[in-house]
Computed example of a mutant assay.
Amino acid sequence: MRNFLVCDGGGTKTDFLIFNEKAEILSCYKCTGTNALFIDEEKAINNVIGGINKCVAKAGLRINDLDLICLFIPGFEKCIDIIKRKINIKNIKCLSDVENAFFGAMGKSYGIVVLSGTGSFSIGISKSNRKVVSGGWGPLIGDKGSGYHIGIMCLEKLAYYYDNNIKDSRLRELCLEKFGIDNEFEIRNIIYSKEFGREDVAEISKIIAQAAKEQDNDAINILKKAASELVELVSILNRRLNNEILPVSLIGGVANIGDLFINFFKDELSLKCPNLYYEDPKYDPLIGAMLYVLLKEANIDIECDKDVLSNLSKYRRI
């Protein structure tokens, strides 16, 4: 029986999972961040090595019992050679977190996945395995429809309220309360400080979500604009995939706003891309990493294999 270890790593948390070719989970382990773009490289390497060793020990295995280690960690490719030397394993790979996010959401090898978190991007894979990507350009020239973009639109609206002496707004009230200020002009001291970063801007999307749930029209329109921008990413992929009939899933922190935002996305999707259809995401990225390895590395049909399907049915869906 072949055994595999996968790792889904980010800037703040990392998950490890050992499983076999039947998709039976043998052990799992969680630790802090491993994305070497955001944390110290040596710390990231030590976290990965520690996570691998502890996950292997929990499974009652040895490193040599693993047929493959596959790390889905952005910015970690340059660290692989060091990992190989320190734990004496040759069959180890590093991929971006796009691949496992896709397989987690779709639960299969084709479809279109849109991720809207702090940033945004979309990936599409046809039934003939043609892959295309749109978005992911970062906050200066992209990230439309992301939490960051929603936060920026909110800040722009606050400036508009101040310049036009508009006081009657639930969105305005929630923002002033959240930042602990008396008027919009004071927010400049907060957002232009060195401590206020991209993630802080993205956090403002939660205020928009709350205001929209309380029927604030400006907040609702901001969310509709964000949903439209995300569907535009899908439209680009749709054209490049020759309007193939495919499922679409939306994942990430903005999707966690819930049905309010997802319904805006669905409405825009049916309007702009009638050949596509929405599906709720199936699994988290860690299970997505497992599915990727089973299909791409172990050559197991994850849509037809009875053992795999039986075991997948036991795991929590998102």
Rank of each mutant, 00 (worst) to 15 (best):
K127E: 11
K127S: 02
S128A: 09
S128D: 15
N129E: 05
N129L: 04
R130D: 15
R130Q: 11
R130G: 09
R130T: 13
R130M: 13
K131M: 02
K131Y: 02
V133N: 13
S134T: 03
S134W: 04
G135Y: 13
G135H: 12
G135N: 15
G136R: 07
W137K: 06
G138K: 03
G138F: 09
P139D: 00
P139F: 05
G142P: 01
G142C: 02
K144I: 07
K144F: 12
G145F: 13
G145N: 05
G145P: 11
S146L: 12
G147S: 10
Y148M: 07
Y148K: 01
I150H: 00
I150Q: 07
I152N: 02
I152H: 10
I152R: 13
M153L: 15
C154Q: 03
C154N: 04
C154F: 04
L155Y: 05
L155N: 02
L155P: 09
E156G: 14
E156K: 15
K157E: 00
A159V: 02
A159S: 05
Y161V: 04
Y162P: 04
D163W: 05
N164F: 10
N165Q: 10
N165M: 08
I166H: 03
K167R: 12
K167I: 08
K167N: 11
S169C: 04
S169M: 00
R170G: 04
R170Q: 02
R170E: 03
L171K: 05
L171F: 00
R172C: 03
R172K: 01
E173D: 08
E173M: 00
E173I: 07
L174C: 00
L174G: 00
C175V: 07
C175T: 10
L176N: 04
L176E: 06
L176Q: 04
E177Q: 06
K178P: 08
G180Y: 08
G180A: 04
I181C: 00
I181N: 08
D182G: 04
D182W: 02
D182Q: 10
N183Y: 09
N183H: 05
F185T: 09
F185K: 05
I187V: 11
R188L: 09
R188E: 05
N189K: 11
N189F: 01
I190M: 10
I190G: 10
I191W: 12
I191E: 09
Y192S: 13
Y192C: 14
S193A: 10
K194I: 06
F196E: 01
G197D: 11
R198M: 12
R198A: 02
E199H: 13
V201E: 08
V201K: 08
V201M: 14
E203K: 02
E203G: 00
I204E: 03
S205D: 14
K206R: 06
K206Y: 06
I207C: 14
I207R: 13
I208Q: 13
I208C: 15
A209W: 03
A209G: 08
A209D: 12
Q210K: 02
A211I: 15
A211Q: 13
A211T: 15
A212P: 02
A212C: 02
A212V: 03
A212H: 08
K213I: 03
K213A: 02
K213Q: 06
E214D: 14
D216Y: 07
D216C: 04
N217Y: 12
N217A: 11
D218Q: 06
D218M: 01
D218L: 08
A219H: 02
A219S: 15
N221W: 06
N221C: 06
N221T: 09
N221G: 08
I222V: 11
